[in-house]
Design a protein around this nucleic acid. Structure first.
Lengths: 209, 209, 209, 209
DNA sequence: TATGAATGAGAATTCATTCAT
DNA sequence: AATGAATGAATTCTCATTCAT
């Protein structure tokens, strides 16, 4: 693997290889991907692959890193979002479902890789931690505002309800559980809101009469 | 692989191999297990393996079948359980957590195998379906009794809340999220109960007024 | 590589592979030999090779061991040899030349391998040590009998004169220095004998008056 | 590789590469040296290497040539040396030991390379020939002066005794045979002198009456 | 002259599976 | 039923060398 800083051409080749690898992993799964597949897709010889990556695993490592980064970025509810708690939860759930739709296969591959290689486990842990903290902070705020059940442990609750959304995304998008997006988001949000004892405010878009 | 029915000795050898395979898969993961490992553990030669199983995959198929069966059996709340809805949910959650603790690695392996082989997908689907149906039936009954929000789709809700428990089991037991069992079961149950709008009955052990 | 003790058939295959490897190394040198060459020569598939040997290096290790053993055995002057010191030296020199003729290429390969792998260095050291000790013991005996210069260090002298023979064997047999065997043995022996100040006994076959 | 004569800058780069190659070969051995290592050491890029050398082998060829030249030059007993035959032999032995100490690894590499490539064989032959001729001429002169056994074949004797020194140098310096330089030179010289029947002259520094 | 990206021939090794005994 | 020797497809990775810039 190359060490020195790359020229423009080198950077391009590396990026091509990375993209090709991502596609290949997504399509065929880690085991089924051969270095030569990636190279063919990228249009370079397999010697070139080793100019930029140490091994198939190293390539996957970079793909995983990218995917995890995207997952997190994609599911962040902007600060501009409505101040209404219910609406924020709803927006977060919708975003997560969509982010998952775009990356589910790869994320599951990272999860599997984590079984064998702690490096991937750490990557996943960081991602999960970010989500959990985000959820726990949100809940804590609601509790402080008297809008949510103060007896719930914020972290544990965030882990559980976040897990509900994550797991549903998997079941829905990967395992083919049938549901419309609107229905799915609605149910997830209602369950979440009610679970934490969210007190509807006047602007709430909750289930109505 | 032989077809005719087995002698007693044959049955024993087969069972030994199956147990050895299960242990090996559990310890090292699918890819890392070599047929030789299994045979060494079972104390038979390579050739013998193929007397009883068509392939490594076939062995794993049987292991998976067994695990899935155990998972389902282990997590069924007996009919003798208290009639109190909250208590039933609590019992189910506790049982599921424990069943998962006993089988998580193998279940995850089955999940991963399902990515590549639809046969395992089907197996998993059956398991999930049984859980979902059980959960949905329970909810429907509560709705009919006027004890749960009637506007919730029973199946979708069961998928989501069941997923919450399943996912938490994974996070807690495999990924090391710290929590005590009592706390975990309590939170899962409270979140679940409140999410479906479970109206406390007089015998409820819920958090009270 | 196989661990359990081999059946007759297994032993035969292993021996065939070992012989094939020895020939291949002898003919083409370590680097140029491919595992497949050895297998083709032995008439087995290359998978079979790995049933019996861990690697090309391991195979070479066994070949080296064998060659070194043969070298030592082949150059031992039997105790039955004439008691005449000069004749014994002469016999040893002749035997060494012949042993070298049979194994020079492989011995040189071991020498080269020793540069990279201390294991081979040790092997060679043992061989050399045996030769040196044999030579030193012989000289010491002659010194004690008053037949050789007592001021010479037996070990150092044995190393030097033994080296003379070893090196000449190489130059003569490998590098093509022209000489007849009789002449070669004669000169080596006369130089050796005179170098240690060997006093001719009455039965000496030395160069006469 | 370029053909036209080099600019000053070109010469410098070439020399740097040659020196880097020599060091690299000396440290790691032929096989283990990658062109990249040499280039990194020389501070130039891969491509540049091929501006000056046709191949790795060509580089080694030049290194070998240089080493062999140095070996010969370094071990020549100047004409100014004492006219005493014993002293001349002693001086030559000491010089040879020292020259070998400086170059043993590379010389052995050349020897090994000679097994596969006759070009290196020829190089070595020339070196050896020069030594042998020098030794044979010396012996012939002594024989003519009546100072050495006239029945010895000068060339054969030179090959053998020269080999004794060369081989001892290897054993002592590369294989770790323990001896002090003075002892080593003393023994080599005494054995050599007595082997050829060198008659001490009055000025001899030999071991006395 | 120098650079460094690209090439691809080449070899080692693993392990599920078959089959003769 | 059991054995274990034999098979060979499959894949990774290295590094000397070429060549466009």
């Amino acid at each position: 693997m190359i060490v020195r800083s790359l020229t423009l051409r080198g950077k391009r080749t590396r990026a091509t290889l990375l993209a090709a690898g991502r596609e290949a992993f997504e399509e065929h799964g880690y085991d089924a991907v051969r270095i030569d597949d990636v190279c063919a897709r990228a249009g370079v010889s397999h010697g070139t692959f080793y100019t930029y990556f140490d091994s198939k695993e190293a390539l996957f490592g970079e793909v995983a890193q990218a995917v995890v980064g995207e997952m997190f970025a994609a599911s962040a509810v902007g600060p501009a979002a409505s101040g209404d708690p219910y609406a924020r939860i709803e927006a977060a759930n919708r975003l997560y479902l969509r982010a998952w739709a775009a990356n589910s296969r790869l994320v599951r591959m990272v999860e599997h890789a984590a079984d064998a290689d702690p490096r991937f486990g750490r990557l996943l842990l960081e991602l999960r931690e970010a989500f959990v903290r985000r959820g726990a902070d949100g809940l804590r705020r609601l509790q402080e505002q008297g809008l949510a059940d103060p007896s719930l442990d914020p972290r544990l609750t965030a882990v559980m309800l976040g897990g509900m959304v994550e797991h549903f995304a998997h079941v829905w998008l990967d395992l083919g559980e049938r549901a419309g997006e609107q229905d799915a988001v609605d149910h997830l949000t209602r369950l979440w809101a009610r679970a934490i004892g969210l007190t509807p405010t006047s602007t709430s878009s909750q289930e109505g009469p």
